[in-house]
Lab assay of single mutants.
Amino acid sequence: MSIQHFRVALIPFFAAFCLPVFAHPETLVKVKDAEDQLGARVGYIELDLNSGKILESFRPEERFPMMSTFKVLLCGAVLSRVDAGQEQLGRRIHYSQNDLVEYSPVTEKHLTDGMTVRELCSAAITMSDNTAANLLLTTIGGPKELTAFLHNMGDHVTRLDRWEPELNEAIPNDERDTTMPAAMATTLRKLLTGELLTLASRQQLIDWMEADKVAGPLLRSALPAGWFIADKSGAGERGSRGIIAALGPDGKPSRIVVIYTTGSQATMDERNRQIAEIGASLIKHW
């Protein structure tokens, strides 16, 4: 067993022997301040990774656009098919120029040779490549099948209805392509620590998230040296922004954090800054 596999296998073990965790309302004060600064709703939840206990939450059962955070769930569904012998990570998928959609920095470079399922998941999570996500959605049967996968996990809230990039439209009061912070946090925890996926697939999923290259201005910008984070960000229309993450000190994750916002007129930089400040408060009061 590799060191990384050992780390993920012992996530519940280490967490069980940690000192009790206590909620700190100071972080919620910052979440509410972010709402004021952005002029928009902000949803927040913080779960203990081992027990699933909610440590703090704000608007945990209000719907927010998922945006690209759905790509972690998508690759979880792909990995479940791999575990069941219905898919192979090494299978190569070929596609054409007509398949390319807006923001496809990886797939646009491989029109000639195609990409493997493993490479597509890596591109979808680490670079948020939209064509990679659409190609992977095709392998599982489309958005409705991802929703069905989530329902089978016990998540009857999260739903995907459309493809990239239309799913980022974020129309107010439109339930399409949305989740709730509580539902997303619980589902992410199941994917990373539950028995739904094999140990190898859980490790692969967290490795992809740990290698995320496009979430630097968010929670990662607030992390002290030595902290662990595996995350996936999302951005959408109407001032929408979000991030889902597993993080913790001492090089291992111990909490799940989900943050979503929508309806702001603020710039992307300002949305990023507010999420980073929430992260800084979380870490300060850990």
Rank of each mutant, 00 (worst) to 15 (best):
residue 24 H to R: 09
residue 26 E to K: 12
residue 27 T to E: 02
residue 29 V to D: 06
residue 30 K to G: 05
residue 30 K to H: 08
residue 31 V to I: 09
residue 33 D to E: 06
residue 34 A to C: 14
residue 36 D to A: 12
residue 38 L to R: 05
residue 39 G to Y: 11
residue 40 A to S: 12
residue 42 V to K: 00
residue 44 Y to T: 01
residue 46 E to N: 15
residue 47 L to E: 06
residue 59 R to P: 02
residue 59 R to E: 03
residue 61 E to T: 11
residue 62 E to L: 08
residue 62 E to I: 07
residue 65 P to R: 01
residue 66 M to Y: 04
residue 67 M to P: 00
residue 67 M to Q: 14
residue 67 M to L: 12
residue 68 S to I: 04
residue 69 T to Y: 02
residue 69 T to D: 00
residue 71 K to N: 01
residue 72 V to L: 05
residue 72 V to H: 00
residue 73 L to M: 11
residue 73 L to D: 04
residue 75 C to Q: 02
residue 76 G to V: 05
residue 76 G to K: 00
residue 82 V to M: 11
residue 82 V to W: 09
residue 84 A to P: 04
residue 84 A to R: 12
residue 85 G to E: 08
residue 86 Q to I: 10
residue 88 Q to P: 04
residue 89 L to N: 05
residue 89 L to W: 13
residue 90 G to T: 12
residue 93 I to K: 04
residue 94 H to P: 07
residue 94 H to Y: 08
residue 96 S to A: 10
residue 98 N to M: 06
residue 101 V to T: 11
residue 103 Y to A: 10
residue 104 S to K: 03
residue 106 V to S: 15
residue 108 E to T: 15
residue 109 K to N: 12
residue 109 K to D: 06
residue 111 L to R: 11
residue 113 D to Y: 15
residue 113 D to G: 10
residue 122 S to M: 12
residue 126 T to F: 02
residue 129 D to S: 02
residue 130 N to S: 12
residue 132 A to W: 00
residue 135 L to D: 01
residue 136 L to G: 02
residue 140 I to W: 05
residue 140 I to N: 05
residue 142 G to N: 14
residue 145 E to A: 08
residue 145 E to L: 11
residue 146 L to H: 03
residue 149 F to M: 14
residue 154 G to M: 13
residue 157 V to G: 14
residue 158 T to A: 06
residue 160 L to Y: 01
residue 162 R to G: 08
residue 164 E to V: 00
residue 164 E to L: 01
residue 164 E to W: 01
residue 165 P to L: 06
residue 165 P to S: 08
residue 167 L to I: 11
residue 170 A to P: 13
residue 170 A to I: 09
residue 171 I to A: 15
residue 171 I to L: 15
residue 172 P to H: 11
residue 174 D to A: 05
residue 176 R to V: 13
residue 179 T to R: 00
residue 179 T to F: 03
residue 180 M to V: 09
residue 181 P to M: 02
residue 185 A to I: 03
residue 185 A to V: 08
residue 187 T to D: 14
residue 189 R to H: 10
residue 191 L to S: 03
residue 195 E to Y: 15
residue 199 L to E: 11
residue 199 L to D: 09
residue 199 L to N: 06
residue 200 A to V: 14
residue 201 S to D: 00
residue 203 Q to K: 06
residue 204 Q to S: 14
residue 204 Q to D: 09
residue 206 I to H: 08
residue 206 I to E: 07
residue 212 D to W: 03
residue 212 D to C: 05
residue 213 K to M: 05
residue 215 A to M: 02
residue 215 A to H: 05
residue 215 A to V: 04
residue 215 A to L: 03
residue 215 A to C: 05
residue 218 L to C: 05
residue 218 L to P: 03
residue 219 L to H: 03
residue 223 L to Y: 03
residue 224 P to R: 10
residue 226 G to L: 07
residue 226 G to N: 13
residue 227 W to C: 00
residue 228 F to T: 05
residue 228 F to V: 06
residue 232 K to F: 02
residue 236 G to H: 02
residue 237 E to S: 09
residue 237 E to G: 12
residue 238 R to I: 15
residue 242 G to I: 00
residue 243 I to E: 03
residue 243 I to S: 02
residue 244 I to Y: 01
residue 246 A to H: 05
residue 247 L to V: 07
residue 248 G to K: 01
residue 248 G to A: 04
residue 248 G to V: 01
residue 250 D to H: 07
residue 251 G to R: 11
residue 251 G to P: 10
residue 251 G to L: 12
residue 253 P to I: 06
residue 254 S to V: 09
residue 261 T to A: 12
residue 262 T to L: 07
residue 263 G to N: 09
residue 267 T to Y: 07
residue 267 T to D: 11
residue 268 M to T: 10
residue 271 R to H: 13
residue 272 N to Y: 01
residue 273 R to M: 11
residue 274 Q to H: 11
residue 275 I to R: 01
residue 276 A to N: 12
residue 277 E to Q: 07
residue 277 E to G: 07
